[in-house]
Amino acid sequence: MTIKVKNLSLHYRNHTALHDINFALTEKKIYGLLGRNGAGKTSLLSILASFNEQSSGSLTINEKAPFENADIMQQVAFLYDKDYKDETDKIVSLLQDVQHYRPNFDMDYAEELVAKFKLPKDKAVKHFSKGMQSALNVIIGLAGRTPITIFDEVYLGMDAPSRDIFYKELLADQQEHPRMIILSTHLVSEMDYLFDDVLLLNNGKLLLHEEYDTLLAKGASITGSKEIVEEFVKDMEQINETQLGGTKSVMIYGTLREEEKQAAIAKGLEIAPLSLHELFVHLTEEEAE
């Protein structure tokens, strides 16, 4: 499957949810779609899942527009923070309903996950707690095995052990049944190890799309004497700085060349990598300013 997004924009009456987005996803990987609240993550994913149409630009899956395309829509699953307050069915019946429409759905695996998440089979889904309903969404997404599976902040309400089961199952199932998985989240520090690629959205714009390792290699904190640090980073993209007495630490975004690293060490500066969480916080902070 190939997803191509070109100059995609989405406008509501007085609000631009997405502005001129461009990217392409071509491999069966786990993609982390990061962004602060209101960044446009759900808007983008809802277009991908044919819940909505863009205002301008194009989004194609295998060179075809997904909206109202029966072949494509069947291959995209969009799991989000759905409210099951009116769902009178019990979980097995609901999963059978999903199985009816999802050709790759693995009922045995779904039942295994029901047991792992300890979801009650004798209760109507509307009586499930928030965390249980989220686990149900996870089960539908994992056992559905659709070629494009989107989890939009699907962990909401799940406790830490349940989220841990989700992450482990996600990695294990992706290894056995590789597909394109898009994880939208702002729980970056907890989920970063899951991502192969990262897309960062802010204020409706795509800030970056990088491989996880490449992205991490682009961030560094330079710490040392204030004057030396300032001199060293003056031509670099600075995303954050902190100072304590005469010691200053500056976070930069951009790949350091080998000679720059050597020069920094020679000047007594300390170079440390940045976490995805730090990059996320400071890149979106800078953009907001």
């Binding site: 395309n69 029966a70 291959q75 759905k82 309903d97 429409y101 659709t146």
Partner: peptide, 11 residues
């Protein structure tokens, strides 16, 4: 519900 299961509006 049905669009969420990958069914088109037309279908």
């Amino acid at each position: 519900h049905y669009v969420g299961l990958g069914v088109t509006r037309k279908n």
